[in-house]
Nucleic acid binder design. Structure first.
Lengths: 132, 132
DNA sequence: TAATAAATTAGTAACTATTATCAATTTATC
DNA sequence: GATAAATTGATAATAGTTACTAATTTATTA
């Protein structure tokens, strides 16, 4: 029923997400895309992030700052969240598929997706604390 | 500087969390504790949940409904979130400590906590869908 | 037990992230 | 180019959570 039309703004949002290694919030994406589209509205950012997620082009990843973070990498991969500066960092851990298999054992529902998040102090925050 | 005094309300909140197997939101806890303290305020719920978390007596667990969920079980354990009904369910998976060890390898920060969340359909939602 | 200080409460206002609404603009189709 | 559907910018509304304050409760000391 709902067809997707092309939109420059949506393309810019997706490209912005593709280029960054960070896992920006809607607000950060807003500020980034504003350089190209000075009149873009925050509502447009949210609307398109939802659309892009629904069509499986990006994923929403949770952190602990009560803001949604977004990632153009749709492969399942673990994240690290720094409890001090709030940075969200990709971790490189292969072969975590077995976790889903393990979770499905003895569970009467159906596990489809897994999300592995680590918390602690990122490299620079950890270093700064030791230097104080 | 800040000492914790005893409070009946805080005790009731903690007891409520201890008794339930669900992973209620602040609102659900509010409604539960209201039976014992009809005049309790939602602010009191939030204030004490934060205090209890800060003192390590409970933990906050994320789901995907943009509401915080709480758990009196402070052991690290994986959760399952039903994408249909929103239920948060404990999963039984032993020996997940190695995940933290694994994550720390080749990472320059310090991993302290891990959080493993699975998404999918819970038993009853899965069954109901097949019966339609 | 009474007096005092600090912590906590109920009630409410304020804040923040996100969603909904809507007239105007853009995109796709013919 | 004309038409219909999708999208936008702007703004209002919503929802979860936090902040504020005077009144109450708890802990301490005599």
């Amino acid at each position: 029923m709902k067809t997707l039309n092309y939109s420059r703004q949506r393309e810019a949002i997706y490209n912005y997400l593709m280029k960054t290694k960070e896992h920006p919030t809607a607000e950060a994406i807003f500020q980034g895309v504003q350089k190209e589209f000075p009149k873009i509205s925050l509502g447009t950012i949210y609307r398109n992030l939802t659309l892009l997620e629904e069509t499986g082009q990006i994923q929403k990843i949770p952190s602990n700052d009560s803001k949604d973070h977004f990632d153009a990498n749709i492969m399942e991969h673990p994240h690290f969240v720094c409890g001090q500066c709030g940075a969200v960092i990709d971790l490189d851990m292969d072969n975590l598929e077995f976790l889903k298999t393990l979770a499905n054992q003895g569970f009467d529902g159906k596990v489809e997706k897994s999300q592995l998040v680590f918390f602690g102090k990122c490299g620079s925050c950890n270093k700064n604390n030791n230097n104080s």
